[in-house]
């Protein structure tokens, strides 16, 4: 899974005086208001944060309401899938024209039929819609499958990913990993044989 990163950020959080009784709670509330939103400053969608308040000193802003600024050291978990990166998600719906996936439980991703490689054929299996690989019938994409897809674009406003299954390293995560393991085993055996 790509598109996730950890960032260290030093932030100045401005707190309303009425919240001065519990500053930590007030900081958490401010930061929580940024969750699941794309923020240009962070260059990503904030998924989680951890914070430490460095100093007990705060800077009081002059003005009608004396907000006070608290310096906070944070560790932020950010999500920003760049084009051509690989992300993983769960398939929610399969139809002849598209596969709908949810990534990390909040971001909707869709792969339209033009972006599904020729290898996959649309089938109706036991009343269930799915895409089956022509080369390996065990490689099935159906509702519930964890899918690895390539990002084509990411709409930051609605957190929508346009994905693609054209590259060969995309498809069912389980199947891809099994295949990788088998290939690794195969290469291992070859190496051993050569040594012998």
């Amino acid at each position: 899974m790509e598109g996730l990163k950890l960032s260290d950020a030093e932030l100045m959080v401005y707190i309303h005086p009425s919240k001065s009784r519990n500053v930590r709670k007030a900081i958490c509330r401010e930061l929580s208001s940024l969750l699941f939103q794309y923020d240009e400053t962070f260059d990503g969608v904030l998924l989680a944060y951890d914070l430490t308040v460095g100093s007990k000193q705060a800077k009081i802003l002059a003005g009608l309401t004396p907000y006070f600024g608290v310096r906070v050291n944070t560790k932020l978990l950010l999500f920003n899938p760049k084009p051509n990166s690989l992300v993983e998600g769960k398939i929610l719906k399969v139809s002849l024209e598209s596969i709908h996936v949810v990534v990390l439980g909040f971001s909707a991703a869709v792969i339209t039929d033009v972006d599904i490689r020729e290898e996959f054929k649309y089938r109706m299996k036991d009343g269930e819609e799915c895409f089956v690989s022509r080369s390996d019938k065990d490689h099935v994409l159906k509702v519930g499958t964890m899918l690895r897809l390539q990002v084509q674009s990411f709409d930051e406003e609605v957190m929508h990913i346009a994905g693609s299954l054209i590259p060969a390293n995309t498809g069912c995560v389980k199947w891809l990993e099994k295949k990788n393991d088998e290939e690794a085993l195969h290469m291992d055996r070859d190496r051993k044989r050569r040594k012998l």
Partner: peptide
């Protein structure tokens, strides 16, 4: 439904 789910542009 298809439009809404296929592209973020049409969702609203």
């Amino acid at each position: 439904i298809s439009l809404a789910a296929t592209s973020g542009k049409y969702l609203d």
